[in-house]
Amino acid sequence: MEEEVGPSSSLYGNGDGDVVNKSKFPLTFWEMAVASGVVLGFVLGLLCVYLTMPASDYSFLKLPRTLEDLQILRDHLESYTSDYTLQVLVWYCMVYIFMQTFMIPGTVFMSLLAGSLFGVFKGVALVVLNATAGASSCYFLSKLIGRPLLFSLWPDKLIFFQAQVAKRRERLLNYMLFLRVTPTLPNTFINVASPIVDVPYHIFFLATLIGIIPAAYVTVRAGITLGELRSVADLYDFHSIATLFLIGVVTVTPTLMTSKSRS
């Protein structure tokens, strides 16, 4: 029995379980207008933060792509954080949520920056809250315009995810926690795909809020010794990855036991 993947204005099944793209660009004019409006809102917010900062050379303000970029950004922001704490916090939150909403790579650098600027406990709280807000923003944006885009990019992965969600519906929170804690599926994909496969928002929210804490702690803690990092790969040694998988196995065990008892 084939899993239903849901209707789409420009994508349909061909009868063999494959998805056929009916148009070269998957989003309609109105869907693009919604996405553009969200982008404009973020840009205006960042502009307001910029206008309240003191006159200075802000050429260092750019999304970090390497550890070198991040260290330069950290060195400059340290001098502002004590005197303009509110502005730096608002800037940080808006950038993090914007990156999460539009699936822009590099939030790991923002998590490192939180540890470097605010310490472990404040940094973890900041990362968890912003990551949850950004994931929620991505969830609702995908609910509005994500279906055609998702079927164009990851049709096979989406059908697999939908089948897993349907199979674990009664213990869905445990399964979503497992996905958040472990790198089984990319967090970006989970954010975009969850509303398409009918993961309720309250389950998505709780799994995100709780499930990203372990990885956030590892990353934020590493940000305190930012100068000692040589690459992003240094963040996750064997011990860290094994710990995350152990936590993931514990969260998904009730789901597996329920499935076995019914088979």
Rank of each mutant, 00 (worst) to 15 (best):
I241P: 03
V252H: 04
L177F: 01
S8W: 01
L209G: 11
S36G: 13
L209R: 09
F25C: 04
L244F: 06
A135L: 07
V250K: 04
S36W: 11
Y96G: 05
I190G: 00
N174L: 08
T182S: 04
P54L: 03
G119Q: 09
V232H: 08
I224Y: 03
G248L: 04
R74T: 11
F25T: 14
M32H: 08
F151G: 12
G15K: 09
P254W: 15
L153S: 08
F160R: 15
G223T: 10
P64D: 02
L179Q: 10
V250D: 06
Y96P: 07
I190Y: 00
G119H: 11
S231N: 13
L63W: 04
Y217C: 11
E2C: 05
V49A: 01
D237Q: 14
H202G: 02
E68Y: 05
P214Q: 07
Y58F: 09
F109Q: 09
V43M: 13
V220W: 06
T219M: 14
Y12L: 11
T101Q: 12
S231V: 07
P26I: 09
L46Q: 04
P200S: 06
V124Y: 12
A215N: 09
I210W: 01
L63D: 01
C138Q: 10
K260A: 02
S137I: 04
Y58Q: 08
P105E: 06
V124M: 12
T243L: 14
L226Y: 13
V108S: 04
W30L: 14
S263Y: 12
G134K: 12
I97D: 08
F245G: 08
G13C: 01
I212Q: 11
L185F: 11
L61G: 09
G134M: 10
L89A: 12
G6N: 00
S59D: 15
E31W: 01
C93M: 10
G17A: 02
V20K: 07
L229T: 02
Y201M: 03
T107P: 00
V38G: 12
L246Q: 07
T253S: 12
G134S: 10
L153C: 05
A207R: 04
T81L: 12
M53N: 02
R221T: 13
R74H: 15
L226H: 13
S194F: 04
T132R: 13
G37E: 03
Y80Q: 06
Q87C: 02
